[in-house]
Design a protein around this nucleic acid. Structure first.
Length: 232
DNA sequence: GCGACAG
DNA sequence: ATCTTGTCGC
């Protein structure tokens, strides 16, 4: 597995135009692996998020490392940068991964799994941000999104823990998962080296109190705070 | 062509 | 995503 620095320096991975970016996704999508993840062996979880300044005048990428089962923060890092790729639905990774990878490079401990704010296989080319990160690092990764993007989501029962299929055509590409009683579900999909069951089980363990899993919440709050502190 | 469209 | 505080309800 190439180091993060090699990925960041590889021009073939970071095309400037959307057409070439889609081709990169199609090329890398074949590397995604779906497999059960033994949650008993998971003790360090990384949460990732990016916050943008109005008008795309800068961004802050944040990574927070939490330990299980306490959910306490053991590391947190931020990177400030200028957006280098526009927001194009379906091409998120080309906008968010470069600064996120630079933040991940600073981690002292290696996460057992990466939790991304967005989708994995629930993507037009089955290669969302969580797949992209997971494949580049060849590490377990999953995506948790706050809204649907592709496919049709079956509404879960009202109780926390209930889930419904997220389908595109006949294919199950993710799950709508209720993390709080009576509260709008989140949308979970596989990134790499996990399966839907282990991904959903982990998301529930990471969301004992709030709708959004703690690692993503923590990264979101950190990136917002860092952006506000840098003025704008 | 039109609308919808992770953050 | 961002522009945005308090308030109501569980």
């Amino acid at each position: 597995m190439p180091a993060i620095d090699q990925h960041l320096a590889d021009p073939l991975l970071w095309p400037a135009d959307p057409e070439a970016a889609r081709a990169v996704q199609e090329r890398l999508a074949g590397r995604v692996r779906v497999a059960p993840l033994d949650l008993d062996s998971v003790s360090l979880v990384a949460g990732l998020d990016v916050t943008y300044a109005p008008g795309d005048a800068g961004l802050v990428a944040a990574v927070v490392l939490l330990e299980l089962p306490s959910l306490r923060v053991v590391e947190s890092h931020t990177v400030t940068a200028e957006p280098a790729f526009p927001y194009v639905p379906g091409l998120f990774a080309f906008r968010e991964l470069p600064p996120l990878l630079r933040a991940l490079r600073r981690l002292e401990a290696e996460p057992d799994v990466y939790v991304c704010d967005g989708y994995g296989l629930a993507h037009p080319r089955r290669f969302g941000l969580a797949c992209h990160l997971g494949v580049l690092l060849d590490r377990p990764a999953l995506g948790v999104a706050k809204s649907a993007f592709v496919g049709e989501a079956e509404p879960p029962a009202p109780a926390r823990g209930s889930a419904g299929d997220l389908r595109d055509g006949g294919e199950v590409i993710g799950r709508s998962l209720r993390t709080r009683d009576g509260v709008k579900p989140v949308y979970v999909s596989v990134g790499h080296r996990v399966d839907l069951d282990s991904a959903c089980e982990l998301v529930l363990r990471l969301s004992p109190r709030y709708r959004i899993p703690e690692p993503i919440r923590a990264a979101d709050q950190l990136s917002r705070a860092r952006l506000a502190a840098s003025g704008g």
